[in-house]
Computed example of a mutant assay.
Amino acid sequence: MQSTKQQLKALAEARRGVIVPGAFNALSAKVIEDLGYEALYVTGAGVTNMGFGLPDQGFMGLTDIADHTARIRDAVELPLIVDADTGFGNALNTYHAVRTLERAGADCIQLEDQVSPKRCGHFSGKAVIETSEMVGKIRAAVDARRDGLLLVMARTDAAAVQGFDAAVERAQAYAEAGADILFVEAVTTADEVRTLPQRLQVPQLMNMVIGGKTPIVGAEELGRLGYGFVLYANAALQGAVAGMQKVLAQLRDAREVREDPTLVAPFAERQRLVGRPFWDALEKKYA
């Protein structure tokens, strides 16, 4: 049987537009797995939003994402792509971050070239570090791997700051430094989306942010274009927020909530997702 790292590498190389939803905690990861997805993304924005109630502006630290990764790794068998922001410092910090996240269960670690503190790729006001500094971080990440199958994903935010061509040049430099997967963030036109797979040879991820700067393109088309992964980092989060607002508004207004499957997951479904039958059986075994 293939390891999760081998599975992820095969998915990247197949270039068929595999949809990768974002998980912000262990239960969201279990829902993703239960619905049949092939991989998931441990989202820094989601951890920051749901864990701290703060915007994606560099508030998350290495310990935060490592703790979430370890819990998710324990909950699901899917390959995990883990958002490591800027590596939480310089190349040495990046080396340490890769060691820490690999130990926590990551199969791929994503690093980006923003100036720290970073911000959401679809926010204004971003800045990027020098290409040479990011190349050093990627080289450090590659050297830090204990398992050579661990993948390194390099993200560039340069399109918003220096233009599309500069972003492509950076991505190419990152591939030459050893990045296994490339992620050009926040492109703004459908033509740019279509062009990237023609200009970069390394497998790529395209980020579909609902309400963001990149036009939404279907996963089928992105697969035909040659993208390895289609990221929906915070679709589950946005859906969860909408669901919470809906049920809590009804509770406030009607003063009660009944078991309506269009409004809340049934009690039995919640227990199934968290594996209660397994734990009940275990309890009987050891009684």
Rank of each mutant, 00 (worst) to 15 (best):
M1H: 09
L8T: 01
E13F: 13
R16H: 02
R16A: 03
A29K: 10
K30L: 09
V31W: 15
E33D: 09
D34Y: 13
E38V: 01
L40V: 14
Y41C: 11
T43V: 14
T43S: 15
G51K: 02
T69K: 08
R71A: 15
L78S: 14
I81G: 02
V82L: 02
T86C: 00
F88S: 04
G89N: 04
G89D: 05
A91M: 10
L92G: 05
N93H: 10
T94H: 10
A97D: 06
V98A: 07
D107S: 04
D107L: 02
E112I: 02
D113M: 11
S116M: 12
S116D: 09
G125W: 05
I129A: 12
E130Y: 06
E130H: 08
E133Q: 14
M134V: 07
V135F: 06
A140V: 09
A140P: 01
D143L: 09
A144V: 02
L149S: 05
L151T: 09
V152W: 02
M153P: 01
A154N: 11
D157W: 07
A160D: 15
G163Y: 09
F164D: 07
D165P: 14
D165Q: 11
A177K: 03
L182Y: 11
T188Q: 12
T189N: 05
E192D: 00
R194A: 15
P197L: 09
Q198F: 03
M208L: 06
G212D: 05
K213V: 13
K213P: 08
P215V: 09
P215R: 06
I216G: 06
L225H: 00
L231W: 04
L231E: 06
A233S: 10
A236P: 06
M244T: 01
Q245E: 10
A249N: 10
R255T: 10
E256I: 12
R258H: 10
T262M: 05
T262E: 12
R276F: 13
W279K: 03
W279P: 03
L282D: 02
A287K: 01
